[in-house]
């Protein structure tokens, strides 16, 4: 790979390349088992985003042995293991260290055909952009931290973050997909900015079509926007042109850092409707067409 991408790719033969990635973080939900599931879904996501199939994984653990019950760690690891089983991935081992704060994640290896690697680059004029999970998990995680989120919302967002991008990745392979990435810490606009940079193209988004968790709008309006969203905005704002009528709250949510977010798929225009229908049929129900690639050398994102 010439440019930084979601994960590293190493070609072994004409038929096989391996993709390697590593991802870990501190707890985002109180429930230990769910945290393990989310961390695993998040680590696997980079492999899916590059068109690969995850095969093996290793655990990475940091744990404050003196302050926390070891049973908590067992639950976290069980959550991760169950997600790996769901993804047909084998856990080969791992490494743990004593740490002042709990951390968990995985290093994952996947297989891909060297000619079928999907990167963030390779946008084609006219392509449509499909997003497979709604935005707003960063705002809701901040509300959870602040003790303001209700049980029902915590449950809903936990389920969403623990959902594998596997089904979306499998459906995507049946279509002419030119580029793909997964939406995580940089927020939707941050990741799109990476895609459009050096592409010689520009993107146009329709903010009304972008799926956003309704509760995220409520909490954002109450000051629960995570600091990361402002950092993402500051870093990439020069590449974005918002039309004047867009609510500032929505502008910020488009930069909201996502945990285990959905895939952003750049697909041949004529196939976009079929792709979305098939995604919905396979259970990726929130999938939506959110924008398009336009022939414009500005390398900017126009949000209307």
């Amino acid at each position: 790979m010439e440019k930084a991408d979601d994960a590293g790719v190493y070609k072994i033969s004409e038929e096989l390349a391996i993709i390697q990635t590593v991802d870990y973080f501190t707890p985002i939900v109180d429930d230990a088992y769910s945290f393990g599931q989310i961390a695993a879904a998040n680590a696997l996501s980079d492999i899916y985003a590059m068109g690969g199939v995850p095969k093996t994984a290793m655990n990475l653990v940091g744990f404050p042995l003196k302050q926390m019950e070891i049973s908590i760690l067992r639950q976290v690891i069980q959550g991760g293991l169950d997600k790996l089983k769901e993804a047909d991935v084998v856990l080969l081992g791992g490494h743990s260290v004593e740490d002042s704060e709990m951390k968990y994640g995985l290093s994952v290896t996947g297989f891909v055909h060297p000619e079928k690697v999907l990167t963030k680059k390779n946008l084609k004029s006219g392509d449509l952009l499909v997003l497979t999970k709604p935005l707003g998990t960063g705002v809701i995680n901040t509300a959870i931290k602040g003790g303001m989120a209700s049980e029902a919302i915590i449950k809903n967002v936990t389920r969403m973050m623990a959902e594998l991008n596997r089904a979306a990745a499998e459906v995507m392979k049946q279509f002419s997909v030119h580029a793909c990435t997964d939406i995580t810490g940089y927020g939707l606009l941050g990741h799109l900015a990476e895609m459009v940079e050096d592409s010689g193209m520009a993107l146009r988004l329709e903010s009304r079509k972008i799926p956003i968790l309704p509760e995220a709008m409520d909490y954002a309006g109450m000051g629960m926007m995570p600091a990361g969203a402002f950092k993402n905005k500051e870093f990439r704002l020069h590449m974005i042109e918002f039309s004047s009528e867009i609510d500032p709250l929505i502008q910020d949510i488009l930069f909201d850092p996502q945990t285990s977010g959905g895939l952003l798929i750049c697909v041949k225009r004529e196939q976009a409707d079929d792709l979305v229908n098939k995604l919905i049929e396979e259970g990726v129900r929130e999938s939506k067409i959110v924008g398009e690639v336009i022939s414009n050398p500005a390398e900017k994102i126009f949000v209307g």
Binding site: A220, G221, M222, G223, M224, M225, P226, A227, A229, F230, K231, E234, L249, D252
Partner: peptide
């Protein structure tokens, strides 16, 4: 002492 907190506090008070 940071922009993020300023925006959030302002939004909260307005809400």
């Amino acid at each position: 002492d940071n922009e993020a907190s300023q925006q959030n506090v302002k939004r909260f008070l307005e809400s």
